[in-house]
Computed example of a mutant assay.
Amino acid sequence: MYISRPAKPQTSTRQRDAERTRAALLSAARTLFSTRGFANTGVRDVAELAGVNSSLVGRYFGSKQGLFRATLEQVINISPALLGDRRRFGADMVAALLDAQDAPGPLAMMILSAADPEAHAASVEILQLQVIAPLAKWLGPPDGEGRAARLNILWTGFLTNWKLLPIQPLAKAHHSSTRRWMEAATQAIVDEGET
Rank of each mutant, 00 (worst) to 15 (best):
M1N: 07
M1G: 08
I3A: 10
S4A: 13
S4W: 13
A7L: 14
S12Y: 15
R14M: 12
D17F: 01
A18Y: 15
A18L: 13
R20N: 15
T21W: 04
R22A: 09
R22Y: 12
A23G: 11
L25H: 06
T31I: 04
F33C: 03
R36N: 09
G37L: 04
R44E: 10
V46I: 15
V46P: 05
E48N: 12
L49V: 06
L49P: 01
L49F: 03
G51E: 15
N53L: 07
N53G: 11
S54F: 08
F61D: 00
G62F: 08
S63A: 11
G66K: 02
L67G: 06
F68I: 02
F68H: 02
T71M: 13
L72D: 02
L72K: 00
N77Q: 10
P80A: 04
A81W: 08
L82S: 02
R87Y: 07
R88W: 08
M93N: 09
V94H: 06
L98Y: 05
D102L: 04
P104T: 15
A108P: 03
M110S: 10
L112G: 08
A114T: 03
A115L: 09
D116P: 01
E118C: 01
E118A: 10
H120P: 01
H120M: 05
A121D: 11
A122L: 04
V124M: 12
E125N: 03
I126P: 00
L127R: 08
Q128S: 06
V131N: 04
V131T: 10
P134W: 02
W138V: 02
G140I: 06
D143W: 01
E145R: 09
R147Q: 06
A148Q: 05
L154Q: 04
L154Y: 01
G157R: 08
F158I: 01
F158W: 14
L159P: 00
T160K: 07
N161R: 14
W162D: 04
P166L: 13
I167Y: 03
L170V: 08
A171I: 02
K172N: 11
K172L: 07
H174L: 08
H175W: 07
S176I: 13
W181M: 10
M182G: 00
A184C: 01
A185P: 00
A185E: 05
Q187E: 05
A188N: 06
D191H: 13
G193F: 09
G193L: 09
E194R: 15
E194G: 05
